[in-house]
Write a protein that binds this DNA or RNA. Structure first.
Lengths: 155, 155
DNA sequence: AGAAATTAGTTACATATGAAACTATCTCTT
DNA sequence: AAGAGATAGTTTCATATGTAACTAATTTCT
């Protein structure tokens, strides 16, 4: 007599997508609070600011690629930053559809205030891991990213 | 003459909160599509379903704790599942404020259809890692979770 | 026992987000 | 060079989400 087939079960607390999501949200929320409370920035605005600091003159489309934000989100984040006086739009000479985005002096100022805070929060977090473990985590995440999204690089 | 202090920089692509967020979103989205396309469930509804399958008669509050959803999100997910006929509310005899939630026969049916799909998608994903690496990842995530949220257990 | 404070869960409102439509510009084909 | 598509970015609209206010039931305190 064949054994009765047990119904499939799935414990959420050991299910990788769930664990990753909860962990990521806990971390992001903690850091987002920092941007928001101190500087009134959303996480999207912060990301735009970070890549613009890294690559002055970047276009909205390229920001989208580098941050994994869709173009609507980029458009809104950019609009907000401009309104706050942290970002400036310079019409591109060779393509009138795009703008070259650069941080204003004020934008650079608050960017440089935020960076050490963000880095120190990250450091606090990863200090729970040894150097070796940190490297290992990065490596494993890279493998997962590739498996999850082989078509395009996630970062 | 003191060296000019370099402005702080932060490359998003090596910033753990960013990497985690992007990875988690890529994975969740892939799986959420599966729930949604095939069964019309949101990720929140799926989570409620999973913990209810695991613990029949669970209360909304406890669902919130186990899934890291706030009570409004739980309330809405439960309402949706009831409307779809997958979940049933049984008034609790000892506390009239709470209900005991259980999956209906139909709910159990689709739960058992989803579980193998979800597990196989997870398996496909983690198959990029060796057994040892999988265990290591889980361990490192646990440490991070503790560091990120020492006050309460994330999972 | 009875008022005051907690707790379970829902509802209402304001804001965030995503998909699709749209405008303007550019590129490619002929 | 002119029309057909493609691309950059914005706007619109419908839906999702979070916060705060609310209702009802329970517990605590005196």
């Amino acid at each position: 007599m064949p054994e009765k087939s047990h119904p499939a079960t799935l414990r959420l607390s050991t299910f990788l997508p769930f664990r990753l999501s909860v962990l990521s949200n806990a971390i992001s929320q903690r850091i987002a609070e920092l941007y928001d409370r101190e500087f009134g920035l959303s996480i999207w605005q912060w990301r735009v600011m970070a890549v613009t600091a890294d690559t002055p003159g970047i276009s909205a489309t390229e920001i989208g690629q580098r941050t994994q934000m869709d173009k609507v989100a980029v458009s809104r984040a950019v609009a907000g930053l401009i309104e706050m006086g942290y970002l400036e739009r310079r019409p591109s000479t060779d393509d009138a559809r795009r703008s070259n985005l650069v941080l204003t002096r004020a934008g650079i100022g608050i960017y440089e205030l935020i960076v050490p805070l963000a880095l120190s929060e990250e450091a606090r977090l990863v200090s729970a891991l040894s150097e070796r473990e940190q490297a290992e985590l990065a490596r494993l995440m890279g493998k997962l990213a590739k498996a999850a999204s082989p078509e395009r690089d996630l970062w």
